[in-house]
Amino acid sequence: MFLFHTIVNTYLVQIIHSLGGNDSDFGLSLMITALSELPAMLGFSYLLTKRKSGIWLKVAAIFFVIRSILFLLSGSVFMINLTQLFQGLAFALYIPASTYYVNQLMQKTDYVKGQAFNIGAVTLGSVAGSFIGGWLLDNAGVPEMLSAGIAASFIGCLLLFYSVKTDI
């Protein structure tokens, strides 16, 4: 999922330009993304009173896939900006949910180790996203890069659904 996440965040300016947008459109899109994260991140403790962190991880994974598909289908800067709103249901849910999940899964003496593995996995996805996204952008184009992001987010979603316990 973070392969896709990194592709979109690192190469967003190229995505915007491919749709006829300019640097101002890029800035607006980034602002929309950042603002969409605030409700989920600030309200996550409330969400935990409704469902456990494992459920929120699965919800986030589904929205990573939805967001990746919407990016590919977006034919205008306006549609990209609407798609950016889904960041609040993908990344913004994933980050606090993964932190809570790891802490609930691990024994207290292993919290730091669990968080290190979590961040390590995110970092690996980010490095792969930068490398693969850049290579595809240079050698194929924006649609192919976004298609790879869909495949990666779908595989990540399947792996998450397979491995995450919903009772935590």
Rank of each mutant, 00 (worst) to 15 (best):
L28N: 10
V122W: 14
D110F: 08
Y111G: 04
I66L: 14
L136A: 10
Q104I: 05
I32Y: 11
L70E: 07
F131P: 01
T99A: 13
L159I: 07
G43S: 00
L48I: 02
L82W: 14
L28K: 09
G134W: 02
T166Q: 10
G21S: 00
F44R: 00
V122M: 14
S29C: 09
F91W: 14
K58G: 04
Y111L: 01
F117P: 05
V65Y: 04
T49M: 10
F64D: 11
F64M: 11
L159K: 02
L85I: 13
A128M: 15
F2T: 06
L160Y: 03
I7F: 01
I119Q: 15
I7A: 07
N81T: 00
I7T: 04
Q14W: 13
T49A: 09
L105M: 12
I132Y: 11
L105Q: 13
D25K: 02
V13Y: 05
L38W: 12
F91K: 08
N9C: 06
I95P: 06
L93I: 06
G114D: 01
L82E: 15
L137E: 06
A90T: 12
L85M: 06
T10C: 11
F4C: 05
G129D: 02
I95D: 10
A148I: 12
S130D: 09
D110C: 00
P39H: 00
K108C: 05
I55Y: 15
A92E: 06
G20D: 09
T166M: 13
L48G: 11
V65Q: 03
F78E: 05
Y46F: 15
L38F: 15
